[in-house]
Amino acid sequence: MHLIDILRRCGVFVLIVWLAASLNFFLPKLSGQDPVRTKLLQQAQLGGYVQQGIDEMVKVYETRFGLDRPLWQQYLSYLGDVVRGDFNFSIANYPRTVWDMIAESIPWTVGLLGMTTLLSFVIGTILGALLAWPRAPRWMAWLMPPLWALHAIPFFLLGLILMYLLAFQVQWLPIFGGYSMGAVPSLSVAFVLDIIRHATLPALSIILVAVGGWALSMRGMMVTTMGEDYVVFAEGKGLRSLTIFSRYCLRNAILPQITALALALGQILSGAVLVEVIFGYPGIGTLLYQAIRENDHFLIQGIVFTVIVSLGLATLLLDLVYPLLDPRISYRRT
């Protein structure tokens, strides 16, 4: 891979980081008033035991982003904060910093989302490949219609239905949260099992929907690949059908799937946020829901920025790994 191409990909990533930060800075200002200041002043008037701290925040906010300073100075000092990873304090939970709260919920989301994305991608791709393969068992064709129908439904709606059936009616699985109330977080087997039990329903509602999409696109690619001359030639040579399936068809058809995965990450995340909200799963989505309910602008901005940057990073990694999978693409200049 050429150094220039790696640098260009990294440049796009920096661009995304910058865009996300600018979005956070300018969009709230478009409405003419400053919702952050409004909320801060409200909170200061409410008083309470953290009064001192909120007053302090108002003062700091006024000196840094006050109307007496030109916009570009405010913008630069905001960018400086972002680069240093300083997202300020949470307005609604004052003594805690935004970064603290995000760091606490990130492992939950990464665990749930990483697991479900990987599982649905692998299962869906294999399923799709088999669906296109003439020698696959007959009954597999019956899987198509339900997969299609499920694929059209949003994650969280299936989550609601599954929740009612499996958690409310038969009570096989817990209905709410990331672990049992009163359970002490530790590395014991019991606690890990508890976490898995709680993650099963949210994970299931994502996987059942997502598998259909991957299966559909993989099946389409397989059909095209199987029509290629080199596959016919491989059959003519008398290669074992398993070899043709895995080395000739699967290997080639999987490439667009990986490109699609890089593009789909954002959508998957948008959907997973709502799944977390429905199940009260203690990840980024639920944190965001609380932040919106409490009008906690600093927390909302921090979450949006963190998520956009992490997804940008994931896309960048997928882009950089791609040439290793597809030897035809070495980012050569043409």
Partner: peptide, 13 residues
């Protein structure tokens, strides 16, 4: 590649 829902949230807020 950016999760659309999050950008919409910032706009709506």
């Amino acid at each position: 590649t950016v999760p659309g829902l999050l950008v919409l949230i910032i706009i709506a807020v």
